[in-house]
Nucleic acid binder design. Structure first.
Length: 314
DNA sequence: AAACGTTTCAACCGCCGCTGC
DNA sequence: AGCAGCGGCGGTTGAAACGTT
């Protein structure tokens, strides 16, 4: 069964030949596509209109960008997907020269696996449960060499009777490392950069206003009171502050264990009281993972409404 | 070199919303 | 209001390419 529009006439299916591409390209270059349903006839093709449209959009369009996705593009996809979900066409609008189909394929073949290997649910971007993670063990094993879990959320609060209390997220960093984040300073200064320098005050802000880049020019920043921020502000971090790809040398290149055994953000009652200040020294750190994990652990709030609101702006 | 398994990605399928009649 | 045609979209498929044994 073909499309309804294709049932009237015999149409060719499957891969496009160079000759067909040439016909379609010449026709649209000369006349535009007008009504897609009339294109096959006018262009001398035995294809249905939908097939022509798809071929043009996904392959023949002159403004298409070829080649593999860059780390920056990948980050944009992840960031926008976190907000919009599988709305590939919307996501693709943030990537000039990329098609929804391309983005979708890249997501399914690469990013999805990458997130799973990091213990993150590709649908929600939250941490997978231990059970879910166990079921993805194979995938993790496969890609462990190119990624690592930045930290784990565990529950270890107990009351005086030694009975388990409500899960209080405890953030344990790998190998008790000092957390490190690097922000480039070579970019042209964005007017927002000045106010963004102090992450505690300004860099973390509602996401939806814009996806335009906010360049943070400071080379070192400290995150104080992060927990309060997360609890008090139903916001999403500005992912554009994430500037270093995670492919940088990882745990082995970080500094040796520091004096602090663990950096712990723990909740008392309903409050996210933290002494955790993330030392920013040399090296790189994946803020995005922190975001995903902390948001999932600390913000037990339904962000979907906010997300939808943000979606309108795209 | 061959067989087999896995990944990639172009193309198709079917549904939905919009528009015009 | 109901219908048909159309464009657009997300999910799925399957052939080709690639990797492994």
């Amino acid at each position: 069964m073909g499309h309804r529009c294709c049932t009237k006439q015999k149409v060719k299916r499957g891969l496009w030949s160079p000759e067909e591409d040439d016909k379609l390209l010449k026709h649209i270059t000369a006349h535009g596509h007008g009504s897609w349903s009339s294109v096959p006839k006018l262009a001398g093709l035995q294809r249905c209109g939908k097939s022509c449209r798809l071929r043009w959009i996904n392959y023949l369009r002159p403004d298409l960008k070829r080649g593999s996705f860059t780390a920056e593009e990948e980050q944009i996809i992840i960031d926008v997907h976190r907000i919009l979900g599988n709305r590939w066409a919307q996501i693709a609008k943030h990537l000039p020269g990329r098609t929804d189909n391309e983005v979708k394929n890249f997501w399914n073949s690469c990013i999805k696996k990458k997130l799973l290997s990091q213990g993150l649910d590709p649908k929600t971007h939250n941490l997978l449960s231990l059970r879910q993670r166990a079921s993805n063990k194979a995938a993790c094993k496969h890609s462990q060499q190119s990624s690592f879990t930045v930290f784990n959320i565990t529950s270890q609060a107990r009351d005086t009777d030694n009975t388990m209390m409500m899960a209080a997220p405890v953030v344990t960093f790998p190998d008790n490392q000092t957390m490190v984040m690097q922000i480039p300073s070579s970019e042209p200064q964005n007017p927002n950069a000045a106010h963004a320098q102090n992450l505690n005050e300004s860099t973390i802000h509602p996401y939806g206003s814009s996806l335009d880049t906010t360049i943070v020019s400071s080379s070192s920043i400290q995150l104080h009171g992060l927990g309060n921020m997360l609890y008090e502000n139903p916001c999403i971090w500005d992912a554009n502050a994430i500037v270093e790809a995670i492919e940088e040398p990882r745990a082995e290149s970080l500094q040796p264990p520091q004096q602090d055994k663990e950096k712990i953000c723990e909740t008392g009652n309903d409050k996210f009281d933290t002494d955790a200040s993330f030392e920013i020294e040399g090296g790189s750190f994946d803020l995005d993972l922190i975001e995903s994990t902390l948001v999932s652990a600390a913000m037990c709030r339904d962000l979907s409404c906010t997300m939808d609101d943000f979606g309108w702006n795209f």
